[in-house]
Simulated assay, not measured.
Amino acid sequence: MTAHNDIVRMNPLERRLADIVVPVLNDLGYELVRLAVLGRETPTVQIMADHSDGRLISVEDCEKISNAVSAVLDVEDPIPGKWSLEVSSAGIDRPLTRPKDWERFTGHLAKVEMEAPLEGRRRFAGPITGLRGQEALLRLEDGTEVALPLGAMRKARLVLTDALLKEGAPSKAGAEANGENAANQEDIH
Rank of each mutant, 00 (worst) to 15 (best):
P99C: 03
A163R: 15
R94L: 09
L150K: 01
R98G: 05
P99I: 00
E113P: 05
P149H: 05
V159C: 08
A147M: 11
I92M: 14
S89N: 00
A163Q: 09
R132N: 13
F124P: 06
D162V: 14
V146I: 14
V112H: 02
G130Y: 06
E115C: 08
E135Q: 13
L131G: 04
G91A: 05
G107W: 08
I128D: 03
V146E: 07
R104L: 09
K155T: 15
L140W: 12
L109P: 00
P127E: 12
T161R: 03
V112S: 02
T129W: 00
R132L: 14
P99G: 02
R154W: 10
L118H: 14
R123T: 14
K111T: 11
H108C: 04
L158N: 00
R123Q: 13
F124K: 06
A116S: 12
V112M: 04
T144W: 00
L148D: 13
A156S: 12
G143T: 00
E119A: 14
G133C: 00
L109W: 12
K155I: 05
R157E: 15
D101W: 07
F124E: 03
E115T: 13
R104A: 09
L140P: 03
M114F: 06
S88V: 07
A147K: 11
A125E: 15
G120Q: 01
D93H: 10
M114N: 07
K100H: 11
I92E: 01
G126K: 10
L109G: 03
R139M: 08
S89G: 10
G133I: 05
R94E: 10
V87H: 04
G107V: 06
L137G: 10
E145H: 00
A90N: 02
E113N: 10
D162F: 14
P95C: 02
G130C: 06
V87G: 06
D101Y: 06
L150M: 03
E103P: 02
A156H: 07
G91R: 07
W102V: 05
V112E: 05
P149G: 05
A125P: 00
I128S: 08
G143M: 05
M114C: 09
A116D: 11
E141F: 10
L118A: 12
M114Y: 06
G91W: 08
R94H: 07
R121P: 11
E135T: 10
Q134I: 05
G151W: 14
A152E: 15
R139E: 13
E103I: 09
D142F: 07
E115Q: 15
A116P: 03
R154F: 10
E135A: 10
A136V: 04
L160Y: 09
E135L: 08
R132V: 12
R94A: 13
A152W: 11
G130W: 04
A116Y: 11
T129I: 08
H108Y: 15
R122M: 03
T97G: 01
E103A: 12
L109D: 09
L96D: 03
T97Q: 12
H108E: 11
A156N: 04
F124D: 06
I92P: 01
R98A: 14
P149M: 00
